[in-house]
Design a protein around this nucleic acid. Structure first.
Lengths: 264, 264
DNA sequence: CGATGGCTTGAGAGGCTTCAATGCCGGTGG
DNA sequence: CCACCGGCATTGAAGCCTCTCAAGCCATCG
């Protein structure tokens, strides 16, 4: 199994939490053609206005979506972690309305729109799954509006930490844990609509309250209950367990396929 | 032609600016089954967590999407005007993650998911068009993040006015014009992440600068160039003219159908 | 060892909120 | 027809949250 397919497996794993696919449909996703590319930190791999013939899947690293705005005061409107298809929407809307930048050295997989469209056309369930992925992404952005518009700096920061924890760990949360999240305080500031100075102060507060701390790209959650309550965090919007809630045919058939390819 | 279809025509008009559909596909949309419903001001017609079997199209009035948050400090994450299918995403993600509330007395059209899914299944172009509508909605929300997180109160307010002007007039903008936008200053405050007191001051400033004023739900733009430059407004994200830019087969065939039904 | 990038901390300024009071307008009931 | 009432707009004053500016620190790396 090539490394391509194991990355696609990571993507498929997320998709399968939200959509039920047959073994054949899973195979179709796993065998999508793709080209690996490495992007150094601070470089845009999608620029505003670009019309690329492919979507990008994050294999490794961290990427930010920068909304159309002035150069000064850059605002990040989404953060993308490994397994995220950052660009899936470009399949139906090719012209990029926001830039995508690697925040750390990042590996991406470029998947041709033609191939995505082909598998969507051939398997309606895949088309629906892709559509649903876009809808979930939108729900996350929508929650960012609530977060930035409706909460103060401390809660905002805590909420973002909660979201990233939940996404990195695919919902597997206990009271204390650690995870890698290589964003700088400047990145956090751009994502939260704050200054890096103030983000710093909020992080020190969260640490002092015993909730969580960040050191060199490693987040250490010391009190998940306290943190998530303080942030008013409700993970429902991340929709990481819909397939189970929709509960049509059982997930095990497709899960088998997934495991094979993850270990490959 | 029933009033149902003329409302669907308004929706179709927006869709056709972004997607190219055959005459038959337009017909399929126009003949979607639907039920009219009137919602009084301040009432939720979709509550958090609801699993409705239909999507809602705004026929008349104004609706707001309220993100999941505490009751105090309500944050609006989207505003929806006549012709908007506020709920299209619920076709693939039935459980509502945000409440929808009528801000003024509002008329909606409830369109069964079953019918939407059926037409999407039968006409792949319709599935793609629906998917694209969701993606455009997401782009708008994304721009709200940039607006709220990255601009100060004055620019924020101006930017929202620009966006609503552009959406109400479907991009047909001249230097001076008037349009109805029945949001109160409290609604604007909830949408902008400000207090109504401060929104009021910003509106008075915009008026004093000769840009625009709002009186009793009527926006009067006195200097579009000044206003949109002040707000750093770039309408590209609203994607109101993609079909023309994509420019595959000409639009005239479908446009004819549309006009017939709009006048019906 | 200097250069670089990120983190930390302080002091002062200012943008926005909070609290509070008044005015305006349309709707309603006597 | 008029008085009252409720929701919204407007304005002022005080205070806090966050920004700005600035400096110093620490780790990493060539």
């Amino acid at each position: 199994m090539t490394p391509f397919n194991s990355s696609l497996g990571h993507f498929l794993a997320k998709v399968l939490r939200r959509s039920l696919l047959s073994e054949e449909e899973c195979q179709a996703i796993l065998s999508l053609p793709a080209r690996v590319e490495h992007v150094e930190a601070r470089r845009d791999f999608v620029r505003l206005g670009d019309r690329n013939p492919h979507s990008c899947l994050i294999v490794d690293g961290l990427a930010g979506r920068f909304g159309q705005g002035q150069e000064g005061n850059r605002q990040i409107s989404a953060l993308h972690i490994p397994g995220d298809m950052v660009d899936l929407h470009s399949t139906v809307l090719p012209q990029a309305r926001s830039a995508l930048q690697a925040l750390t050295p990042t590996t991406i997989l470029k998947i041709p729109h033609a191939a995505l469209r082909e598998s969507a056309a051939r398997y309606p369930a895949i088309a629906e799954a892709f559509w649903r992925e876009c809808v979930v992404d939108a729900a996350v952005v929508s929650e960012w509006v609530v977060n930035i518009g409706g909460r103060n700096a401390g809660m905002r920061t805590a909420h973002l930490i909660c979201e990233m924890a939940y996404r990195y760990r695919l919902g597997a949360i206990c009271d204390q844990f650690v995870f890698a999240f290589p964003a700088t305080q400047l990145h956090l500031a751009d994502a939260l609509g704050l200054t890096s100075v103030h983000v710093n102060r909020m992080l020190r507060t969260l640490d002092a309250q015993g909730f969580a701390k960040i050191r060199r790209g490693i987040v250490e959650v010391m009190d998940w209950n306290g943190l998530s309550e303080f942030a008013e965090f409700d993970p429902a919007y991340l929709e990481l367990d819909i397939a189970r809630r929709i509960a049509l045919p059982p997930l095990c058939v497709t899960a088998k396929v997934l495991v094979e390819h993850d270990q490959g």
